[in-house]
Amino acid sequence: MTDRIATRRDRAGRTVAALIGLSLIPVLAGGIRMAELTGGAAVTADNARFFASPLPIVLHIAGVTVYTVLGAFQFVPRLRRRKPGWHRIAGRLLAPSGLVAAFSGLWMTVFYALPEHDGPLLAAFRLGFGTAMAVSIGLGLAAIRRRDFTAHRAWMIRGYAIGLGAGTQALTQALHHLVAGPPDELARALLLGAAWVINLLVAEWVIWKRPVRFSS
């Protein structure tokens, strides 16, 4: 029994470490972007849209940072069982942070000018997955209000998987760079879309493979 508990703790620790590792990619990218906006960086074709309308990108960075980093600790069963109050308090921060990240991302997709290396297909992916993230969080909140803990967990995991997409996207693009060089517009869109799909497939596996019963 002791060995089994230790194994579970090790697995939870590895899971949190992996999720935070993926989270650090968008968090560091967001930090660099914030440094540009606040440090008087030169305005270029790549960042002009952010200088022209900084509020959406600032909200997006803040929302993603809280959602992805804090959200990683919701995957620790021991915390849920032993400190249900912590789980609820964290959830009250995570849900609005996730919605801010999703809606600010949708706003930027619709109203910011498309960067040179992006295209309509990637914009469609961002609209689709951003909407799915917001809907997943909304359904998760609705489920917990009716005390359907199983549905709440499933929808929140799906929303988190989409929110963590930027981390996986960095990996899919890096792999393409190593194998075939820089991607063109179509390849970039497919690589970013594939990362969201990968995350959702992993989420469905977690939902199916490791059900968790909540006592409160």
Rank of each mutant, 00 (worst) to 15 (best):
Phe125His: 11
Pro84His: 14
Trp86Lys: 01
Arg92Ser: 07
Leu79Cys: 04
Val135Ser: 06
Glu116Asn: 02
Phe103Ile: 11
Val100Ser: 02
Gly98His: 05
Leu122His: 03
Leu114Gly: 01
Pro115Phe: 08
Arg88Ala: 14
Leu79Ile: 15
Leu114Gln: 11
Phe125Ala: 07
Leu99Tyr: 03
Gly85Tyr: 15
Phe125Gly: 02
Arg78His: 08
Tyr112Gly: 10
Trp86Leu: 15
Pro115Ile: 04
Gly130Ala: 05
Arg126Ser: 09
Pro84Met: 11
Ala113Leu: 11
Leu99Met: 13
Ala124Gly: 14
Lys83Val: 12
Pro84Glu: 03
Arg126Tyr: 10
His117Val: 10
Trp107Tyr: 15
Trp107Ser: 11
Arg92Tyr: 11
Ala123Leu: 08
Ser97Trp: 01
Asp118Ile: 02
Val100Gly: 03
Leu121Val: 15
Leu99Ala: 07
Leu106Val: 08
Phe129Pro: 04
Ala113Lys: 15
Pro115Lys: 08
Pro84Gly: 12
Arg88Lys: 13
Gly85Glu: 14
Ala102Glu: 01
Phe103Trp: 13
Pro120Asp: 01
Phe111Trp: 13
Phe111Lys: 04
Ala101Gly: 00
His87Phe: 02
Asp118Cys: 01
Lys83Gly: 01
Arg88Tyr: 09
His87Cys: 02
Lys83Arg: 15
Pro77Asp: 05
Phe129His: 04
Phe129Tyr: 15
His117Ala: 13
Gly85His: 13
Ala95Phe: 03
Met108Tyr: 13
Arg88Asp: 11
Leu94Cys: 01
Ala132Val: 06
Val110Lys: 07
Ala123Gln: 15
Trp107Arg: 09
Ala101Ser: 12
Arg80Phe: 06
Arg92Pro: 00
Pro120Ala: 03
Trp107Asp: 12
Ala134Gln: 03
Phe125Ser: 04
Ile89Pro: 00
Asp118Val: 01
Leu94Val: 02
Arg78Ser: 13
Leu99Phe: 02
Leu99Pro: 00
Glu116Trp: 02
Ala90Trp: 04
Gly98Gln: 05
Asp118Gln: 09
Phe111Val: 08
Pro84Cys: 08
Leu99Ile: 09
Met108His: 12
Gly91Leu: 06
Ala95Leu: 10
Pro96Val: 14
Gly98Ala: 10
Thr109Gln: 06
Leu106Asn: 05
Ser104Gly: 09
Lys83Asn: 14
Met133Ala: 15
Trp107Glu: 13
Ala124Ser: 13
Ser97Arg: 02
Leu99Trp: 06
Gly91Trp: 04
Leu94Ser: 03
Pro115His: 08
Gly130Glu: 05
Pro120His: 01
Trp107Gly: 11
Ala124Val: 07
Arg82Met: 05
Arg81Pro: 00
Val135Met: 06
Ser104Ile: 03
Asp118Glu: 15
Ser97Lys: 04
Asp118Ser: 09
Ala102Lys: 05
Arg88Asn: 09
Pro84Ala: 12
His117Glu: 14
Trp107Ile: 12
Leu79Trp: 14
Leu94Gly: 00
Gly91Tyr: 07
Met133Lys: 06
Leu79Val: 11
Ala90Arg: 02
Leu93Lys: 00
Ser104Asn: 07
Ala113Met: 08
Gly105Asp: 10
Arg78Leu: 13
Leu79Lys: 07
Gly119Leu: 03
Ala123Met: 11
Gly119Met: 02
Leu122Cys: 05
Ala123Thr: 05
Ser104Asp: 09
Gly98Cys: 04
Leu106Ile: 15
His87Leu: 03
Leu79Asp: 03
Arg92Met: 07
Trp107Ala: 14
